Simulated assay, not measured.
Amino acid sequence: MTRPILIAGLAALTLGLGACASKPKQLPPEPGATTTTQTTPQTTQPTGPVPGSQADFVASVISDTVNFDTDRYNIDASDQGILQSQASWLARYPAKAITIEGHCDERGTRDYNIALGERRANAAKNYLVSLGVDPSRITVVSYGKERPLALGSDEDSWARNRRAVTVTVN
């Protein structure tokens, strides 16, 4: 019976001494010795959005959104500036296509707002076409009042929801 205790004691002592063993220390270089360090050249990642992406579009244009007055779909002077900046971006990326989404506020029937949203999207499309953008690059879709940007039943929310939004496709 003492033999298993003796073996267990020796095993514990061996493990204990092994844990106390010190690691070999690395000595500093000899005085006067030259050391060379090899550095890996840093590759710089491009900052900002990928050219031609939706993020690039949003960063490059005045706005991706044209807002409208109540029951209106006309393009006013501020809208013209926004759409001119969009046309310039599209001229830089002739292979890019866009979708213009027409939106309305919550007032009015669903059918009325779908039709009004389509007129808003088409008004933006027609202005871009008048600036030289190929109409085959532009599709329109109306969401009516189904995708509000601002939730609320007040003039500020309604004004933010009456819009046409340009989204890049490919």
Rank of each mutant, 00 (worst) to 15 (best):
A150C: 13
N170H: 01
S60M: 09
G144Q: 09
K23W: 12
A124R: 05
T139L: 14
K25E: 09
A121M: 10
S78A: 12
D105R: 01
G32E: 03
V129S: 07
V141R: 15
R120L: 08
I7S: 00
T99C: 06
Q86I: 06
Y93N: 08
L6H: 05
I138N: 04
V66E: 05
A97G: 11
P31I: 05
E30P: 13
Q86A: 08
T43P: 06
Q84S: 08
P46Q: 07
T139D: 13
R160D: 10
V165G: 00
E101I: 01
T35C: 03
V167K: 05
S88K: 13
D56E: 08
A8G: 03
G16Q: 01
Y112E: 10
G52D: 11
Y127V: 13
G18H: 01
S157I: 09
I62F: 09
D79L: 03
C20G: 06
R162A: 03
A124D: 10
S63H: 06
N161W: 02
Y143W: 15
Y93C: 01
T40G: 07
T2K: 09
E146A: 14
S153L: 07
D69E: 15
P29A: 09
E146S: 15
D154C: 08
L6T: 08
A21L: 06
I5N: 01
P46A: 05
L90G: 08
L27A: 12
T36M: 08
A164E: 01
R160L: 14
V169S: 05
S142T: 07
G144H: 10
R72C: 11
V167Q: 01
T43F: 01
K96W: 04
N122A: 10
I75R: 06
G48T: 09
E106M: 05
R3F: 04
V141E: 15
W158I: 09
V129N: 06
D111T: 10
D76A: 10
T43Y: 00
S157Y: 01
P31R: 04
T34C: 07
I62W: 02
P49D: 04
V140D: 11
A159P: 12
I82W: 03
Y93G: 00
R107S: 13
R162E: 01
H103T: 06
N126K: 10
K96Q: 05
D156L: 07
L15Y: 01
L6K: 03
F57S: 06
K145Q: 15
G102M: 03
T39Q: 12
N67W: 10
R162N: 04
N74L: 04
N113L: 04
V61P: 12
A123L: 07
Q54V: 02
I62V: 14
V50G: 07
K25F: 11
L83K: 02
T36C: 04
K145I: 00
M1I: 00
D154R: 03
R119S: 14
V58P: 09
I138L: 08
L90M: 14
K145D: 14
A91H: 05
N161H: 02
R92K: 15
S60G: 12
V129K: 06
D71W: 15
S78I: 14
Q26T: 12
D71A: 13
L128M: 11
A124P: 05
E106I: 05
I7F: 02
W89A: 02
D71N: 15
V61N: 11
